[in-house]
């Protein structure tokens, strides 16, 4: 049996990995979202409402929340088409803050006081979702669809001129990413059994992006590496006491300086999985 302490770390990594995957999916089309905590918040609040107030089983609640957030993602994806690069990032940042601010004012779900009453969920259940979605995305990366996503990422103009509907690809990625973030949010709510709007602020959005970039943004399992790293690193730095965060920040800068593509990249991933060159 693992201790409660380790179980909590494991659960945190699973949830963070799902959040990171949600960023990864959108980033794969060349779009940086700094507002995925917003989708996570939508998933957390909706799933909690569905289990606590409507009495639905958690799995069904998660699926419904994912669908709803996916639709929000698609709606967000349309205006996002008008923006590129850092401007899109700032707009998504604004979206995330708007969602947080919305729940802060949404009294039926507790407003600033937060919401509770969820039933605690096991770490095994969390990893069933996390592992399942990770495997799904990893498999998807070998598909024809993912080639279209990569083409859109690499050169949108060239992609459209070889007949790819880059608009649909980019909007679809927002929808899919939002759905995955919502699952992460729903699991977060049922792991911590208490949520408040501050759980889903800019810090969270940045944490998700950080996990992707540190872990490696060219392969899905990079999200796993990044999430585990972000959860374990502060723990292993505990001996530094008050200077723990400064050490963490320093390590972050160092990793970016010496391995800017993240820890896991396509080459390393292939070597690790003993897979021959893509075919």
């Amino acid at each position: 049996m693992i201790s409660t302490y380790h179980a909590a770390l494991l659960a945190d990594s699973g949830i963070l990995m799902l959040g990171a995957l949600s960023v990864y999916i959108i980033l794969a089309t060349g779009q940086l979202s700094l507002g995925n905590a917003g989708f996570m918040g939508i998933g957390a609040y909706l799933a909690s409402y569905l289990t606590v107030e409507a009495g639905l089983p958690l799995t069904l609640a998660l699926v419904l929340s994912a669908l709803a957030a996916g639709m929000v993602g698609i709606v967000i994806g349309f205006p996002a088409l008008r923006l590129r690069g850092i401007y899109l990032a700032m707009a998504t940042l604004g979206f995330g803050e708007m969602v947080r601010s919305f729940f802060l004012n949404f009294e039926p779900m507790g407003g600033a006081g937060g919401f509770s009453g969820m039933v605690h969920v096991s770490v095994g259940y969390i990893w069933l979702w996390a592992g399942g979605i990770l495997v799904l995305v990893t498999l998807l990366e070998r598909s024809r669809l993912w080639l279209e996503i990569r083409a859109t990422h690499d050169d949108e103009t060239a992609a459209s001129l070889v007949g790819l509907n880059t608009t649909a690809t980019k909007i679809g990625a927002f929808g899919f990413g939002a759905a995955v973030a919502a699952v992460a949010g729903g699991l977060f709510a049922h792991h911590h059994v208490y949520i408040e709007p501050a759980n889903f602020g800019f810090d969270r959005s940045i944490e998700l992006v950080l996990a992707v970039i540190l872990g490696g943004s060219t392969v899905a399992p990079g999200a796993l590496v990044g999430a585990v790293l972000l959860v374990l690193l502060p723990e292993t730095l505990r001996f530094l006491a008050d200077w723990r965060l400064a050490a963490f920040g320093t390590l972050l800068v160092l990793v970016l300086l010496v391995r800017r593509q993240g820890i896991l990249d396509r080459g390393l991933f292939r070597a690790l999985t003993f897979r021959r060159q893509a075919s």
Binding site: R150, A159, A278, S279
Partner: peptide
Amino acid sequence: RLFSSMSVWEHLLVA
């Protein structure tokens, strides 16, 4: 204008 992340083979599939 080639796709910067793709191998030759992948270029021949994507279009």
